[in-house]
Write a protein that binds this DNA or RNA. Structure first.
Lengths: 213, 213
DNA sequence: GGCTGGACGTCCACACTGTAGACTTACGAT
DNA sequence: ATCGTAAGTCTACAGTGTGGACGTCCAGCC
């Protein structure tokens, strides 16, 4: 039998593929093994256990987010990183839930955080303000993606077609109904556009605080 | 045998208890049943399946967040809601991951969203701005709690004692090290204090936009 | 009172999960 | 050629969600 050099990268890619296809719940050792033409137990020669695999998979996600270089002007750097994070999280709907459920940070996450903090420090932020900025931006991005994914239609595309399919019990929720109406009916209105708007809200605040305080 | 009127509220409370004790992973039909002195299958007379139970459990969390009344001044209302959400999410560490992983909104969530939106609309927000405000605030709260939970020490208390136990591979992550140092060593510095600061950042921005635009 | 229908709890069975442990195979170095 | 080791397989076990058959209690009726 041709031993085809099972590596932990291949295992991670396979796990990501399984998750892309069937959701996080489909990521079982047997399924990942099957995708590689291998028995479940073989994976244990490269991965300690399933928890570790999921940890690494969360880090796999972080490794995919584009990072700025320390020294870049902080504001566009933050905007670009936020946009990249959003892209990655949107491409793998399972990623958000996974990343959030892991408590042990992997190398990619550490490097990520360190670089972002460095970028802010180089831009003149105090340690405390940098930490606050990081928390605020990160929170915003995660939360926005989450909100976006929970929307009952495709926020990026033509939304009109979808509203008929969804029957939210919107009857006694007038404000919700109002919002859905405006979002769905207003032709040139895209929920997704709010991402940049909201982000600038935060960045504006940070910039003011950077100058003022 | 005394039939003790198993209701879906009791089941939800039991499930929350199991999760409080042993984490989300411990919430199995058998464990929830055991906590009620009942077989797993009995639960199915009150709950469609485990997915539905988890959906309801997520809604159970939302029902616990204090809501403002439509008509209250929007800014303190938003601040209070954010604080309450944070309290609830912190009291049940499993809640965040659960809420985020569910895609079908329950009645409490709908009512919650509707009330918050109503509060903003009554405060003079346009539909678009209200939706943006909601997304920004919610995102911030979720993200902050998440960050807080991931911190390797108790963010609310005396942090100094914890740092020795944690050996983050902080060696070649200078900015991360710097931040941890300052957070942990600075006696009167509390990560938790940043919550209000960051929130005001967002509320300030909204207030400006509400007047200006 | 006694009957009955339906609501509700139990039990067993099945496919599936993570993973420990023993086995087998194939390759690189001697 | 042989051996050691790394890396696969196979078997087994406890635990999971849940379908279906079965039992059992209670409310409403005569």
């Amino acid at each position: 039998m041709a031993r085809v050099a099972l590596t932990s990268e291949k295992i991670l890619d396979a796990a990501a593929g399984v998750a892309d296809d069937g959701g996080l719940a489909a990521v079982s050792m047997r399924n990942v093994g099957r995708r590689l033409g291998v028995e479940a137990m073989s994976l244990y020669h490269h991965v300690a256990n399933k928890e570790a695999l999921l940890d690494q998979l969360a880090d796999w996600v972080f490794a995919r987010i584009e990072l700025p270089v320390v020294g870049d002007p902080w504001r566009p750097a933050m905007a670009a990183r936020a946009a990249s994070a959003r892209t990655v999280l949107a491409a793998h709907p399972w990623a958000l839930g996974l990343v959030e459920s892991r408590r042990t940070p992997g190398p990619a996450l550490l490097h990520h955080h360190d670089t972002v903090l460095g970028c802010l420090r180089a831009g003149g932020f105090s340690v405390a303000l940098a930490s606050q900025a990081f928390a605020a931006i990160d929170s915003y991005v995660y939360g926005f993606v989450l909100t976006e994914q929970r929307l009952p239609f495709d926020a990026a595309g033509e939304a009109g077609a979808f509203v008929a399919d969804v029957d939210l019990p919107v009857g006694d929720h007038p404000h919700l109904a109002e919002m859905v109406d405006e979002i769905v009916m207003g032709g040139d209105y895209r929920f997704a556009d709010q991402f940049d708007d909201g982000l600038e809200l935060i960045l504006d605040g940070l910039e003011r605080r950077l100058g003022g305080d």
